[in-house]
């Protein structure tokens, strides 16, 4: 069994109070291990985005605990959580969230620089990450000079720079066409095969199928899970 990178233990999240209170998560326990890509599927309102923001330390659970690489996020304080987000957790959004005034390399280097890395060293790490996602030649372009697929690659480079071990992706292919979306999934998959833990939130079954495990969320509860048993009924015919 590989190391558990992300562990949610009986997490609930209630928004609002009294008659308008909404239970986004109702007691979710969930793990993602090193080398594993887990997809979370569910209709809108099932709690899947809440799960991801809580896993990434962008939101806090009402009860229950979240640990990343053994550290309980709730006990870290704001500064500690922010540091965790810069060093251990990479986040990929549907709409890329790149800073328009910065080049690709500067966007990717930013979390390293914020973490105190000298800018030259941060740039080298950024170039390595851009190399991994196949667009090192676009390092000095600005986001508006790139296609959607290229921007999402930059966002993935930013999420993995500095060897972060937890990659959280919220509908990362939502704004992309089928082919480009598949390339993005391939990158996430490769990163997990190389040892990161990945959590992919999506409503598209075709994209979820890239994961080792698919977790189904309904009304804030995990209702089922499809495992990773290799049932190779369609063995390839070797030439």
């Amino acid at each position: 069994m590989s190391a558990v990178v992300l562990h949610l233990d009986n997490v609930t999240r209630v928004h609002g109070e009294g008659p308008t209170e909404v239970h986004a998560l109702r007691g979710v326990s969930f793990r993602a291990c090193a080398g594993e890509l887990v997809a979370v599927m569910g209709p809108s309102g099932s709690g899947k985005s809440t799960l991801l923001t809580i896993a990434g330390g962008l939101d806090e659970p009402t009860s229950g605990t979240v640990s990343v690489e053994g550290a309980v996020l709730g006990s870290l304080g704001n500064a500690g959580r922010a540091r965790m987000r810069r060093t251990s957790i990479g986040y990929v959004f549907q709409d890329f969230n790149l800073i328009p005034a910065l080049t690709a390399a500067e966007n990717v280097a930013l979390p390293r620089e914020l973490d105190g890395e000298r800018s030259k060293a941060a740039r080298l790490l950024a170039l390595a990450a851009l190399e991994e996602v196949g667009i090192v030649d676009l390092a000095d372009r600005f986001p508006d000079e790139m296609s959607g697929g290229q921007q999402q690659r930059v966002a993935i480079a930013r999420a993995i720079v500095g060897e972060r071990r937890l990659i959280l992706a919220d509908e990362p292919t939502g704004a992309l066409d089928t082919d480009t979306g598949e390339e993005i999934l391939r990158l996430l998959r490769n990163r997990c095969d190389a040892g990161a833990a990945g959590v992919l939130v999506t409503h598209e079954a075709r994209h979820a199928a890239w994961a080792d495990r698919v977790v189904f969320l309904r009304d804030g509860l995990i209702v089922d899970e499809s495992g990773a048993d290799v049932a190779d009924e369609l063995l390839e015919v070797t030439p």
């Binding site: 079954a205 075709r206 979820a208 199928a209 890239w210 994961a211 080792d212 698919v214 189904f216 089922d224 899970e225 499809s226 495992g227 990773a228 048993d229 290799v230 049932a231 190779d232 009924e233 369609l234 390839e236």
Partner: peptide, 13 residues
């Protein structure tokens, strides 16, 4: 769940 498992297998291939 069953169909998703098949879909994962196809994707792996």
């Amino acid at each position: 769940t069953a169909t998703m498992t098949a879909l994962q297998d196809y994707t792996r291939l």
